[in-house]
Every structure is written in C-alpha cells, then in structure tokens.
Design a protein around this nucleic acid. Structure first.
Lengths: 161, 161
DNA sequence: GGCAGGTTACTCGGATAGCGATTGTCCGAGTTGATCTGG
DNA sequence: CCAGATCAACTCGGACAATCGCTATCCGAGTAACCTGCC
C-alpha cells in the first residue's frame, strides 16, 4: 500500500502557494519548474485540488493557481484526500457472512471487530493529518530551509513575478 | 490508496486459527471453504504469513496451517505488515532539493516538515493496530457472532476434524 | 502376525498469466492583454 | 490621440495511451499415511 507521489507534490505546491502574495497566481508551468516536476502530470493533481475547492484557478495571461482559503484554514488531510480520494484504506467485504457458517444478513448488527479495529486506526491517521494546518507546514518549511535556499527562492520569485 | 483485500482475509484466517485446538493444523482448502474464498489466491497470503513467521505449516496428510505463537503474542499490525509489506505509505522523494532553489544535499539535516507530518500520522495508525492482539480480535468475533453462526461453526469444525 | 518397501493421496511453495489503477502525455476550450485600425 | 474590435498568446481542463502492482491461476516439491507383499 502506497500513497500516490502526487500527494507529496500537492502538499509542497500548496505550501509554496501559501508563501505567495495575495492576488498573485502561479501557473502550473512555474510550479513544475520550481520543483522540477513533469508539468503535465502535475497538472492532474492541481486539478484535483481545484475540484476539491482548495485552490482557485484563473485562465489567460497572468492566470494560474492560488489558494482558495487562508493557509490557516486548510489542513493536510484535506490536501491528501483531494488527491487520494476519501475512500477508506480498509474496505470490509463481510466475509464473516460467507461460507458454511454464515447466517442471514439481518443477524449482523454492527461492523465486525476487525473492521472496527482497522477503521479506528485509520481515524487516528486522519486525525493526525487534520491537526496540522498548511500554515504550520509552510512555517516548518521556512524554518528548516538552508539560508541559501531561501535566498535562491526569493530571487527565483523575483524573476517570475 | 487501498489495502489489499488479502489483508482482510489474513486477519480472519488468523482469528479462525486462534480458535483451533493446539496441534491441530487446518489446510488452505478448509480455510478457503470456511470463508468461501478462492483457494489458490488465498494461499498467496497464507504463504506471506508463513514467511513472516506468524503461522507454521506442515505438509502431507493432516498438514496445514496453525499459529506459530499464542494468539496473545500476535498483534494486528504484524498480520497487516506480513501481507502489505512494511514500506511506508508516504515515501519522501525530497523534491525540496530539486529545481532552481535546491542546494547541496549536505545542507538538509533532517526530514522535511511534510515528511515528518506524514510519518507521524502513519505511526499513529501503526500504534492503533499494534495495540490490538489477535486474542482480542478473536474474542470480539466470538462475542458478536449470532448464536446460530457459532453453532454452525462448531458443527462445521466437527466435520473437518 | 509383524515389518519393510513402495505407492498413493494430500499438503505447501513458487512460478506464471490477466486485469485494473496509477502514471504519463496530448490536444482543445476559455480568457486576458496587447495590438491594430478607424474615427 | 482615443475607442473599439480583432488577434494572438497564455492559461486550465478533460480526454487518451503506457506502465506497474494487485489479482488470479497453475504446476511442481515434499511429506505422511496406507497398502501390499514378504519374512
């Protein structure tokens, strides 16, 4: 089981967008350039973010992507779910009802212990992600980056603005 | 992102094995029959469990699968990892180092905030699963099953023993 | 009747195809800004 | 010199292939029990 690599890309892109001035849109070509990613494939995930309402888009010259909400109001879980979809990791197929010992469906009142255990674990995963805002991600990125990288980022930004 | 359905099968099978008398081995054909699963495909996951040391196998007539350890010493995480492999959901590809703002590798001391966040969430998931023993799973199954199912299970077991 | 050898039936284990989802690529729809033309 | 229409460049969005992992299946290796024949 593996998360799509698009998930990593999407979070990084959102973090970058969070550092941009308001009312400034960054096109996918620039986003792809900044992280050295395949532009067309990255677009796929940006579209997912757009469809999920996390970023808003504008077309034509000067257009591009920008956050649809303040970074403090977006959490990591939202981004992950936008890319991965919100289906559960574990999908119970109720095999307990099958085979020679199975009985009529009406006798099974609640999900089995296995499903409950798996779902509880999944809820814990979600909770951890939901607890971290894009703001925090962005801030961590700024604190950890080598000084040289910050300077290069700023000068890159000057050139595209 | 979705867990293999083999994960569900493996846990159910382990739970069933946990209810068997010691020194009694159940062949894959019986396991598949009990849950009405494709025998050959189920075998794949039983092999994984064997390779992980969770079940032990014996060949020839009277052979089959049985737990390698007491059910109280096996937790759900072990079973899941045996089937899914122990790779992380999120694999950081360090795209922060790429593109026009990247700097030499030596300047990146620790994993980025995004990777840390994702890994912390994953750790929470693992912890939840590790906290539940196969014994508890088995016990929950026994408590929740309709009375009729328990009787049918016992009579099925009489016939295969 | 007991034992030894061979045979049979039953078991797991790994190697081999089929299929769907993730990955990767392309072209069309829509919008903005600049340019050109006419007044 | 200004206003309006036209045009061109730039943007996103969805539709279309390719690859990889999960799904599914098969056959061979190993083992225990049984059966048969001999002592």
């Amino acid at each position: 089981m593996k998360l799509s690599e698009g998930t990593e890309w999407a979070i990084h892109c959102c973090s970058l967008l969070a550092n941009l001035p308001p009312d400034f849109a960054l096109p996918k070509s620039r986003l792809a350039e900044f992280f050295d990613l395949p532009e067309d494939y990255l677009a796929k995930f940006l579209q997912e973010l757009s469809r999920a309402g996390l970023v808003k888009t504008s077309r034509g010259p000067g257009g591009g992507y920008q956050l649809a909400k303040p970074a403090g109001q977006i959490n990591v879980l939202e981004i992950v779910q936008a890319v991965e979809g919100d289906q559960h990791f574990f999908q119970c197929t109720e095999i307990r009802r099958c085979g020679p010992s199975g009985v009529a469906d009406k006798h099974y009142k609640k999900p089995c212990g296995i499903a409950r255990t798996m779902h509880r674990a999944e809820a814990a995963w979600r909770a951890e992600l939901a607890a971290v805002s894009l703001n925090e991600i962005s801030q961590m990125g700024a604190e950890e980056s080598p000084q040289e990288q910050i300077e290069k980022s700023l000068s890159w930004f000057e050139s595209v603005m």
